[in-house]
Design a protein around this nucleic acid. Sequence first.
RNA 1: GCCCUCAUCGUCUAGGGGUCUAGGACACCAGGUUUUCAUCCUGGCGGCAGGGGUUCGAAUCCCCUUGAGGGUACCA
Length: 491
Amino acid sequence: MSNNIRLRFPPSPTGKIHIGNMRTALFNWLVAKQKDGELVLRIEDTDQARSTKEFEDIIIQEMEWLGLDADEGVGIGGDYGPYRQTERIDLYQEYADKLLESGHAYKCYCTKEELDEMRQKAIDNDEMPRYDGSCRSLTEEERKAYEAEGREPVLRFKLPAEEREIVVEDLIRGDVSFSSSVLDDFIIFKSDGMPTYNFAVVIDDALMKISHVVRGEDHLSNTPKQILIYEALGFELPEFAHLPLILDENKAKLKKRGKDSVYIGEFREQGYLPEALFNFMALLGWSTGDEEEILSQEEIIDRFAIEDVNKSGAVFDREKLNWMNGKYIRAAELDRIVDLSLPFLLESGLVDEEYIENNRDWLAEVIDEVRTGVDYLSQIPEEAELFLTGIEFDNPEEAAEEFKGADVKLVFETLKIKMYEREELTAEAVGEIFKELKNELDVGGRTIYHPTRLAITGRGSGPEMTSVISIFGAEEIARRLDAALELAENN
RNA sequence: GCCCUCAUCGUCUAGGGGUCUAGGACACCAGGUUUUCAUCCUGGCGGCAGGGGUUCGAAUCCCCUUGAGGGUACCA
C-alpha cells in the first residue's frame, strides 16, 4: 500500500499526552487511513532537559488505547528510521554541513546572556527583537579567539539577502504569506549539539518522505522558516494543514496543567470509552454537516476530509463528552461494560475478587441496570451501591414513620404473596404486580411506591422499582419488607 | 511592540448572495414516559461582534474597527 501518502505524528515526550496532542494524532491518522497512506510515529526528544522515556511510553500506550495505530516509527520500525530524533543526530549534522558549505548557515558565538541583553534592549527601544547578525561574517581570527575562550557555537540559518514573500499553501487556510523581513537568522543547531525543532522537523519530514504535514495552528508561524530550509536543501515541500487549536474554558490554548485535567490517561482511568473519545475528538474542529453526531470509526474515516476542517479554535466541552460517553456506555456490549466496571467496583471496596467470581451474573444485571445513569464508568460504584450493601436509613425514625402509614403493611404483605406466585420475577412481571396492587387494593399509588422503595433501597430515589425487585429476587425483597415492618413496630 | 490566524446560540457546529422569520448537537427550561432519580420522547429558550461598502438582494464578497488566539526561545 504505497501510494506516497505519508503522514506523521511527532510528539515530544515532555509530558503526559493530552486531548490537544491526541486530536492532532487522530486527524493525521484519519487522513492516512482515508487516503490509504501510512502514519509515522516520530519522537521529538531533542529537548534533553524535559524529555523522558516514561512520557514516550505513555504516548504509545494511549495511542494504542484509542486505536490510533501507526504503520511505522518508534516501537514499530520501518525503512526510514531511526524514529527518535536523538538517534538521528548524524543526519542533522550532515545536512547542517551542507548548509554551512553552501553558505546558507554560519556559526554564531554569541552567548545566551549577550542575546538576552540584545533582545531586552530591542524591546526597551520598542524595536522588534531580532538577532542582529553580528556573527554573520566573522573573520578567521575572530572565530579562533572565541573558540579559545571556550565558547561553543550555535549554527544559524542565514536569511536571504533580499526581502521576499514566503507563502505557506495551507490545505485548511489557503495561502498565508509572510515577509522574510520579520524573520531573523534563526538557530538550527544548539550549542549542546542538538538540532532545533525547526531544523530537525524539516530534515525528518523530508527524509521520511512525508507528504502531508498536519499539525496545530501554533506551528503556522514557524512554517516560513521551515520552507526556507526546504528550499536551501532542495527538498520538495509537503502539503501543509494547520489545525485549529483546542481551547480551555477560558478560550486559551489547552495547557498541560489546567483546572480540569485533559490527559488522555485520566479519561481512560475515569472510565471513558475509547470510541467515545475518538468520536468526540473527531468532532472538535470538524463535522459531517448532518444531524447525527454519534459516528462510528468507519463513518468518520469515510466522511473525513482535511479541507473541511474548521479554521477557528474549539473549546473543549466536557459536558458534551460526558453525554456522548454515556451514550456509548449504554450502547456497548454488556459483557465489555462489566469487565471495564469491575475494577472500579473492586477499588470501591463494595466487592472483592471472590464475590465477583461467585456473582458475576448478578453483578452484570446490576451494572446493566445502573449504566443508564452514568457518564463514565468510575461512577458505577456509587450507583451500584444500593445493590451491594444492606439497608441503612439516613434517618431511621423518619423511615419508621413512613412504614407505619396506613395500608403499608397490607401493601407489603400483598406484594410478597404476589412475588412468590410468579415463576420468574422479571421486571415486566413486577410491573404487572404493581398494576394488580393498584387495582385490587384500595390505596393510592404513592402509598404503594414510596414505602416500598424506601424499604428496599433505603433511599427515596434510584433505579426503577420493577428492575430493583427483579434483580434482587423475591426472597431478598421479602426480607427487606419484613425488616421495614419490624422497624415500624419497634419505633 | 511586530507578524500570522480566527470571529454564527453559553459550548461544538451547518451555512459558501436569494429556499435563513439562520438548521442540528450538548447544556438549560417545560411537558410526556417512569407515580422517584436517570434513561428515552416531545417542545421551548438562545446566535450571525460593530461600522462601512459591493449588490435588486448579504450570515455569506471587500475594507476598517474591535475582540480572541497563536508566534516572535540555544521549547517543541
